[in-house]
Computed example of a mutant assay.
Amino acid sequence: MLIDFAKIFGRSKPSKDVAKERLQLVLIHDRANVSPEFLEMVKGEIIKVIQHYMEIDESALDIQLTRTKSEEGDRVVPALIANIPIKNVKNAGK
């Protein structure tokens, strides 16, 4: 019988994945000049709103704050990029 210590201690992700996410947050902070806490707050709010309408796969969720060229192409601006896998749509407009 195998014991899943991650579940017992409330950790659903391997520590290497958690470390990778934390490193990504630090890099994002450096690029966009926002704190990792701010990005986590935005991520939580996005998840909350989307879950009102859809069932999503939070384990595969990827939200990044990066920089990209503006539409005019004359400057670099922050951009929020979200990859949110949808499992099911709730009440599809019914």
Rank of each mutant, 00 (worst) to 15 (best):
I28W: 05
T66K: 15
L25H: 09
L65Q: 10
P14W: 00
N88Q: 08
I28G: 08
D57Q: 10
I50C: 06
K13R: 09
T68K: 09
V77Y: 02
K20R: 15
L80R: 07
K90Q: 09
E45I: 11
R67S: 12
D17P: 01
A19K: 13
A19N: 12
I63Q: 14
I56Q: 02
N88Y: 08
H52M: 12
I86M: 04
I86T: 14
D17M: 01
T68N: 07
G73Y: 11
A32T: 04
R31N: 07
P78A: 09
I46E: 10
P14C: 03
E37I: 03
L39Q: 06
D62S: 15
E37V: 04
K7A: 02
Q51E: 15
Q64F: 01
Y53M: 07
S59I: 12
L61E: 11
N33K: 13
I86C: 07
K94H: 09
A6M: 12
L25D: 14
I3W: 04
A82Y: 05
H29K: 04
P36M: 04
S59P: 03
R22D: 15
I50Q: 11
F5D: 09
A79S: 13
N33T: 10
L65D: 06
I3K: 14
V34M: 11
L39D: 09
T68D: 15
K43D: 02
V76M: 05
Q24H: 11
E45S: 13
K69G: 07
V42N: 11
P36H: 00
K48W: 02
V49R: 03
F5Q: 00
